[in-house]
């Protein structure tokens, strides 16, 4: 237990939130990079379709997304069957940490993919072509040319994905539930405190969130300026 301004605070939702956000960001970068790269470079007529699909979580009520995830991850469903087949003890994803991360990945997808995509689109095609004609394989093309030229995009993607996951509520509630020390995140803890009229605790957690969010954005904008990449 922490005592902040003389108020007793259970810090575990903070740790859970940070762990979920960190894991989600990592997963999003890993799957977001190839998705964004493909979307940025494709000339296929399907591009619009996939762009819309990626952006869907921006407009969809989180409860809708959470509802579908809850259904698809139900203990008697295909996903659970498949996990049991792979050796998972019960195939249970809902109301677990992994379930939370899966929900968050879907929910924060556009926040990672869109900045990456914008950054990749900024890398001139001629540089990609030049690297190819010099026998660069996809990996070195990516690490030595694309990455350094889209640092800002990476930074923005990682920070926004992290911050957005920290701030989510609806999906988390649907998929993760509210199990203390396991799936209770800060946003839900605040809701709980308000429900039970513990306004002091709600205040402290809210102030922490406010300061955190503002600092994150401050860092993003600050670094963005510092890491400006000049092309030409």
């Amino acid at each position: 237990m922490w005592y902040i301004f003389g108020v007793e605070i259970d810090p575990s939702p903070i740790w859970t939130t940070l762990a979920v956000a960190f894991t989600t960001t990592l997963v999003l970068l890993i799957i977001g990079i190839p998705m964004a790269w493909k979307l940025a470079r494709t000339q296929s007529r399907w591009k619009v379709f996939f762009e819309a699909l990626v952006a869907l979580p921006l407009v969809l009520p989180p409860t809708v997304l959470g509802f579908y995830l809850l259904i698809s991850m139900n203990p008697n469903g295909m996903v659970a069957d498949f996990l049991r087949f792979l050796g998972h003890p019960d195939g249970q994803l809902t109301f677990t940490f992994v379930g939370l991360v899966i929900g968050s990945v879907f929910y924060s997808l556009p926040f990672a993919v869109q900045p990456l995509m914008r950054a990749f689109e900024q890398v001139p095609q001629s540089l990609v072509d030049a690297a190819k004609t010099m026998r660069a394989n996809t990996l070195s093309l990516f690490w030595q040319v694309v990455m350094p030229l889209s640092r800002r995009g990476f930074l923005t993607a990682a920070t926004l994905a992290f911050a957005h996951t920290v701030g989510e509520f609806g999906v988390v509630l649907m998929v993760g539930g509210n199990i203390p020390h396991e799936t209770r995140m800060v946003s839900i803890a605040i809701f709980d405190h308000v429900e039970t009229l513990e306004y002091a605790q709600a205040h402290v957690l809210s102030v922490i969130m406010l300061i955190f969010s503002f600092s994150v954005l401050l860092v993003v904008y600050g670094l963005n300026r510092k890491f400006e990449v000049k092309i030409g």
Partner: peptide, 20 residues
């Protein structure tokens, strides 16, 4: 055969030098 395997050198109109 992809560009990587053809063994051609290309000089692009704008040079296409890596700016970083």
């Amino acid at each position: 055969m992809p560009a990587q395997a053809r063994g051609v050198g290309v000089v692009f109109q704008d040079g296409a030098l890596f700016p970083h």
